[in-house]
């Protein structure tokens, strides 16, 4: 089964990392990514730009309303996500623990994926 691992962390904290600290976290994460890739379990991975770059389309009205900023004002923000193949929740939790050891602080929300289209878009 495919799982989404949604990465939440305080943007204030992540934003106050120096470049060296940021690079160190990314280097530690890369080790986990390589392991997952070797196991053939790693799907798309994304690190999102800061929420200041976000725009929200409220579609509960017609025409939809375009708002500057992220959907929700929260203490911790959605900063990125993984798609990872896993045989069970336990296996995915182990993966998330590996990622957490490389990048402590904040939280991972683990969500099984219902529909998945790899798509053909080129970033």
């Amino acid at each position: 089964m495919l799982y989404a691992i949604l990465c939440y962390h305080s943007e204030d904290v992540v934003g106050s990392w120096t470049k060296e600290e940021d690079d160190a976290v990314m280097a530690r994460l890369a080790v986990v990514h390589e392991k997952l890739a070797r196991e053939g379990r790693l799907g798309p991975v994304a690190r999102l730009l800061p929420t200041t770059a976000a725009t929200t389309l409220r579609k509960d009205q017609d025409p939809p309303l375009v708002l500057d900023g992220p959907f929700a004002e929260t203490k911790e923000q959605l900063l990125g996500f993984y798609l990872v193949e896993g045989g069970s929740l336990e296996e995915i939790l182990d993966t998330a623990r590996d990622l957490a050891a490389a990048n402590p602080g904040g939280a991972y929300e683990i969500r099984p994926v219902g529909v998945y289209h790899p798509g053909g878009g080129k970033p």
Binding site: D12, V13, G15, W17, E21, P104, G105
Partner: peptide, 17 residues
């Protein structure tokens, strides 16, 4: 990250507010 490093990052992030 050690406890101290994590705390320092959290404190730095919280500082302006």
């Amino acid at each position: 990250m050690t406890d101290i490093a994590w705390i320092e990052a959290a404190v730095a992030g919280a500082r302006p507010k």
